[in-house]
Structures are given as C-alpha cells and as structure tokens.
Design a protein around this nucleic acid. Sequence first.
RNA 1: GUGGGAAUAGCUCAGCUGGUUAGAGCACCGGAUUGUGGAUCCGGGGGUCGUGGGUUCAAGUCCCAUUUCCCACCCCA
Length: 414
Amino acid sequence: MPSLQPVRGTHDILPEEILRHRHVEQTAMDVASLYGFAEIETPIFEFTEVFARTLGDTSDVVTKEMYTFEDRGGERLTLRPENTAGVARAFISNGLSQRLPLKLCYRGPMFRYERPQKGRLREFHQVGVELFGVEQAVADVEVIALAAQFLDSLGLRGRVRCELNTLGDMESRQAYRDRLVSYLMDFRDRLSEDSRERLERNPLRILDSKDEGDRGIIEGAPAMADSLTDAARKFFDDLRDGLNRIGIDFRLNDRLVRGLDYYCHTVFEFVTNDLGAQGTVLAGGRYDGLVSQMGGPKTPGVGWAAGVERLGMLVENAPAAPRPICIVPFGSAMTADALALVQQLRQKGYAADLGYSGNLAKRLKRANKMNARAAVIMGEDEMARGAVTLRDMDSGNQTEIPLDDLIDRLSAFR
RNA sequence: GUGGGAAUAGCUCAGCUGGUUAGAGCACCGGAUUGUGGAUCCGGGGGUCGUGGGUUCAAGUCCCAUUUCCCACCCCA
C-alpha cells in the first residue's frame, strides 16, 4: 500500500488544478515578455557543484535539503533546489555574456528535501526571471515592477505587499556582519538555541527570528543602514526613487534577509497573510557576485522566483477549460456521420465531443456534464431531411437547421 | 531535523464510556422518461475503518510502532 501513495511531499496535479497552475505560469511568462524577457529552460539536474558552490556552504538548502545522487557514470548530480544557479551556469556555458544586457525567464519543477507543510512541498514549481549585465538600480526597479505587474495580473493586488531591504555591497555586508555579531555576542547566553547556532553560520538570519526572547535583543541591534558604504547607500536611494517614480508600493523592512549566499544590495519579498506560515509568495534580489564566483565573466544580475503552488492557492478565478460543442447522434445509423462531423469541427478549431452511448436523455446529460455550450442532435428524422437540431445548452432553445449551415451557425457559440 | 494534531466510501464528515451485518450528505451509476440535459422522486454499487503488531470473549473505538497529511518551529518560493 505505501507504494501506491505518492512519495512524501509530492502530489499529482489533477486536471482541474493544473488549469490554475498553468494560469499562474502563463501569466508570468506573458508579463515577463512585456518587459523583454525570453524563456529559457535548463536541465532539472545539474552537477552538485553548481548549487553547492553558489548557494553557500552553510545554507540549509545545501547542507540538508538537496536531492543529491550519483549516476551510473559516477557523477555527483543534484535535482535543482532553485533555478538561479542553473540559469547562471547556462549563461556561462553558452557564452551569453556576448548578449548583455540579457533578460531570461523560466518555469518548472524544483526539489527540496524538507518537511512538508501547506505551501511547502518536496517537488514544487517556480516561475522566475533573471536580468544579467546591468549594474544600475534601474534594473532592480524593472524587475520589481515586473513582479508587481505579474501579481496584479493574477488579481492579487491588495492581498500581497512588497517588502524591501538592502544588504549593501560586499564591503557593507561584511562590516555589518561584524558589528552585528559583536553586539549579539554580549547576549549570547540569552539567545535561543537556533539563534546561537545561526551566530556562527548565518548571523543575519537572527534578525528574522520569531523567538520572543530573540526579538527583544534584536530591537537594540545595530541597523544595516548605518553600515552602508556611500556607494551602497546611493544604490539603495536610486532603487527607492525609481520605485516611487513609477508608483510601486513597498515597505522597508530592515529585518528582511535572504538565506542564499549570492545576494547583495537589493532583497525583496512579496508576502501575504493568507497562507499561514508560508507567506512568501515571490522573492528575490541582486546577485552581482554569482556569475564570477561560478567562473564566468564578472557580470551583475538581479532576479526573483515565485512559488506556483502558493500563488495557485491565492488565485481565485482561474480560467475554465473551453466549453465544447457536443455531437449527439441518435440511432445507430448516425454514429458514422457523427464521427465525421465531430472531426470536421475539431479541424475548424472547435472543442467538440461525442456522446458515445445511451439514449438521447443520457447523452444530453453527459453533454451537460461536459459543460457543453451547444449540442448538435443528429436524429434519424432530421437527418433524413439533411438537417440537424442545434441546441443551446444554456438557454435550452433549439432549432432544426440544414446540415450545410451548421458551421456558420456554430460561430455564435465560439 | 524538533514539537503538537489527524487519518472511517471518490469528497466532507458522524460513529458516545470497546458490544450484532460501519452510517449521512454530496458525487457516481440505474430507473421514473426507448426524441430532449440542469430540477424532483425512487433504487443501486461502492469501505481489508492508513498499515503492522498487541490487549480483550469482543477493537473503527484502547496500547505500541510505522506511513502520510495538517499546524507550528526551522527553512524558503
């Protein structure tokens, strides 16, 4: 029996649900293309190094959440836990630094070995964008504007808010890290166990702690803003000015940090209160060091990723499947004619279906269940006259029309 | 990885302190209606009560283990 249930943290996406899934993905791709982003698809697995080196040796994603295995050739491979590293790798592999600035977007499954929860799966889907080669803050503005427009297009305006922070450049970040650690060291014994652990691995994350005791200590902690270099401060000013100029709402949150090592300067999250603890629906930032760290030419970058399942849970009106025209042959002699007709309609671009068996009532019932827009009844009586009955399934009105007129008349039910 | 809750029909759930053949609503199928769907009425199929052990004359109910889901931590999209 255990073998018949899907692997923990995975699930089947049934037809009704996949409509919403596709809606989220397609909206992302459509809006991204308005901003000049072109879709790229990278492999679902990469050499483990691609992720291990870029995400940070101490990040949880690398240390305990990757699906890593050895293939038959003895290569160490990993199912991608996110796609920025893969896209950066593709950027280098394909020599795309010749085409800067470069805007790429993607969609697809990601894999993390985590304890499942609502909005947190082991196989999940993301859509995302990456912009390479622009070092000015205007790139960050555009990328955030794209995120906002994408979420608006899904009808989520008002249900998500944008939170923004800066980590500064490498220099600022290091200086801040040192100041923060020395401040926190004084309270070491009063910190939660988790945070004492973080003190070594990723002290910035302590800012994000939910522990009551930690929060009190954090209140007195030095602020990132005071450690920014002039250049980093200017960058952040430019970013905020740009967002204000085009009317993108955001809220500064100096506790906002990212878990992955490659971020610098801009970090942002779009969050909702409607999904419990997994409220982050889209997040990203700037990663100027990533490409060079992987061995490529020094290339700045900025991007984000969004969780398709999480967004799917928020989206209220996903588009429905197209309503078919249902062919209802009546009497066995009509079946061959019905088959020919349904085929003809499909080739003309109509969603069309056949009632396979049963009496007229049963076939109409089935047509109703298929949410058919109209039914074409092919009974012996009217067929003898070279006619069919066209029934509007919404109003219940029906008329007998010559078979030759059918295609024309159907255009009303497009 | 840590802590807590849950698992009974396809779905949502009842099933009291253990006691004959485990129920309801919705859904599904059939009939009333062999040329007219959505409504109504009538009938029907469906369950190794997540799985494996144990206690007991007797376990859906109690105990242990295990799997999965949910909530929170952690992490992140």
